[in-house]
């Protein structure tokens, strides 16, 4: 069979694999299609696959349903602040754990692993009360500072730093290079893939985060985009799927664009994180 119809077999393989792909892509296509339909079209049976006239007005309706400028700004501020702060904290920590032996390092590193194990779903009640106590409950800080230590990042970067040969560092020290210079000029350039992975992870997970902002925020002024979009269902009514899907496209688009242009790096980063 396989020798007689090699081409037929290949075609079949292509078709089946593309069908598999569609299982994962189709819901997004349908989201985009719905976001461009009229209310009437969303009610039609059989379902409308391609809208007669694209209704871009749905996007305006969605954006007018809430302070989306604020939501968008908040999402950007929160995500960028977290990434910058995490880098400042985790780079020296990873260096310390990778290249120094000091009393208590084992214990401290096990605390890092412990922090990795304890999720926000456990700590959110006390953290919420702490933030209120400190008088910063109504700012963006409760969505930023609890993430200052990225345990996964420390772990990953430490592995990278460990691979930098000790001789190189010793040679630099003999040349009277300061520790800061060694870190900046020697360690970091050799760890670019790890830094990119960590930043990418932080971006994706905090841009997409829903749980933490949901339990930390009480007012629109500090809410990020995910919460705003999720609330469309309440403000627009449960059956206005065309408007809800338009809001949804607005939320997904930045991530999807990033993914389409650097899917290779993103896929690599995720695979790496899972194996090491």
């Amino acid at each position: 069979m396989t020798q007689v119809f090699p081409i037929a077999r290949r075609v079949l393989e292509y078709v089946l694999k593309l069908c598999l792909l569609m299982v994962f892509i189709f819901p997004f296509l349908w989201m985009i299609s719905t976001s461009l339909q009229t209310f009437r079209e969303t009610l039609a049976y059989p379902p409308t696959l391609v809208p007669a006239v694209p209704q871009f007005v749905n996007y305006l309706t969605a954006l007018e349903a809430g302070p989306f400028g604020t939501y968008f700004k908040n999402s950007i501020i929160i995500t960028l602040s977290i990434i910058v702060m995490q880098m400042v904290v985790l780079i020296p920590a990873a260096y310390g754990f990778a290249k120094y032996s000091f009393r208590g390092s084992g214990f401290l590193f096990s605390l890092v692993l412990l922090a990795f194990m304890i999720p926000g779903q456990v700590t959110f009640i006390p953290v919420y009360l702490m933030m209120a106590d400190w008088g910063i409950g109504r700012t963006l800080l409760p969505q930023i500072i609890p993430f200052m230590t990225n345990a996964f990042g420390i772990f990953l970067l430490r592995q990278y730093f460990k691979q930098v040969p000790e001789e190189l560092i010793e040679a630099a020290r003999l040349d009277n290079a300061s520790e800061l210079k060694i870190l900046w000029k020697l360690m970091l350039p050799m760890s670019k893939p790890a830094l990119a992975t960590i930043a990418l992870f932080s971006f994706v997970s905090h841009w997409n985060d829903y749980f933490w902002p949901l339990v930390m925020t009480d007012s629109a002024a500090v809410r990020p985009l995910t919460i705003g979009i999720a609330m469309l269902r309440e403000t627009e009514g449960i059956s206005n799927w065309h408007v809800i899907m338009a809001g949804n496209v607005i939320l997904v688009l930045p991530i999807l664009l990033v993914y389409i242009f650097c899917s290779k790096q993103i896929v690599k980063a995720f695979v790496y994180s899972g194996i090491k």
Binding site: A93, L111, V112, M148
Partner: peptide, 9 residues
């Protein structure tokens, strides 16, 4: 070096 991270934890 590790202080800020440990402080956060």
């Amino acid at each position: 070096l590790v202080f800020p991270a440990m402080f956060g934890i």
